[in-house]
Design a protein around this nucleic acid. Structure first.
Lengths: 140, 140
DNA sequence: GTACATTTGTGCGTATGTATG
DNA sequence: TCATACATACGCACAAATGTA
C-alpha cells in the first residue's frame, strides 16, 4: 500500500498500517528484521520522523522490538503459561508504568494483568506470557 | 523534579517520569490539559523532540491522549463494568492492532482482553472499561 | 464568512553517543 | 579501525487542525 501525504490520516499511521499488514500476513516473519529507517525513508518517500514514529507505534502495539545499533525485529510471542483465576477474584488489564516495565523487564507494548483475590492480595502478571483460565468445575 | 541533561537516563524519560508523577499525584487532574509542547520546551529547557517523545511515552501507557491542533489531555478512566469469565474459558491480554483500535475507538495505550469460551467463541473487550470476575461459587 | 492565535503533525539538517559486525 | 544503524537531542520551517474573535 502506498503512502498518501495528502490523506487525513497521518503519514506515520499509514506506514504503521502498511507494516502491520505485512507482519500479520507473514510477509515479515517473526524474528526477522524490519527494513532500516533509511530504507523505509527512501522506500516510501517520507521523513525519518514519520518512519521513527511508525516503528514506535508498532513497538507500543507489541509487534516489534528495536535493538539499538542493530535494527527493529518482529516480535515472536513466547509460549503462554496458564494461570488460573482464583474463585472470587477480579482481573484488570492495563499498561505498566515506566518503573513496572523496567523492573519486570517487559518490552514496550506489553500489557499487564492485575489479579486481585478475595483477600485483597494483588498479583501482577506479564500479559504476553500468561493465559488466564477458569476451569469448568468450580474448584480452587 | 528538574531535568538533568547529563544524566544517563534520557531527557524524555525524565520528563515523562516527572509528568507521570504529577498525574498520579493529582496535580494534573483527569480531563485537564497538559502544558503545550512549546510550554514544556521552555519550562524544562529541552528540545521539542524530547517533549514529544515524553508525551508519546505517556500515550503508550494510556495516561494521556493527544488531539491535533488542541493539546494533550489526562485520560479519565471510565468506570469498569464487571464481566464474568465463563467456566472453562481462557483469557489473554494484548495490545489491539491499528484496525481494532480504530473500530473499537480505543485510545493509545489501552490493551484488550480476549476471552475464549469452551465452544471457541472469542469475545474482545476494551481493557480500560472491563474488570473480569470469577465468582466464589462456580456457577455459570 | 474571514482572520488570527494556538497547538500538534511533518520534514529536514545537524550532532553526539552507543551497539554491532 | 571502520562502516552501519539506531537513540537521543537540538534547531528551524511549514502544514494542518482547532478554537475564537
Amino acid at each position: 500500500m502506498a503512502i498518501d501525504p495528502r490523506s487525513h490520516t497521518p503519514v506515520y499511521v499509514q506506514l504503521a498500517d502498511t507494516l502491520r499488514e505485512q507482519i500479520e500476513a507473514g510477509e515479515l516473519a517473526p524474528g526477522s528484521a524490519l527494513p532500516s529507517e533509511a530504507r523505509l525513508t527512501q522506500e516510501y518517500g517520507i521523513g525519518r520522523e514519520a518512519v521513527r514514529m511508525s516503528i514506535s507505534l508498532l513497538r507500543s502495539e507489541g509487534l516489534v522490538t528495536t535493538v539499538r545499533g542493530h535494527g527493529s525485529y518482529i516480535r515472536e510471542t513466547p509460549q503462554r503459561r496458564q494461570v488460573e483465576v482464583p474463585p472470587g477474584a477480579s482481573v484488570i488489564a492495563r499498561m505498566p508504568s515506566g518503573g513496572e516495565r523496567r523492573s519486570m523487564q517487559l518490552d514496550e507494548g506489553v500489557p499487564i494483568l492485575e489479579v486481585r483475590d478475595p483477600k485483597g492480595n494483588v498479583e501482577v502478571l506479564p500479559g504476553d506470557e500468561v493465559e488466564l483460565t477458569r476451569p469448568l468445575s468450580g474448584r480452587a
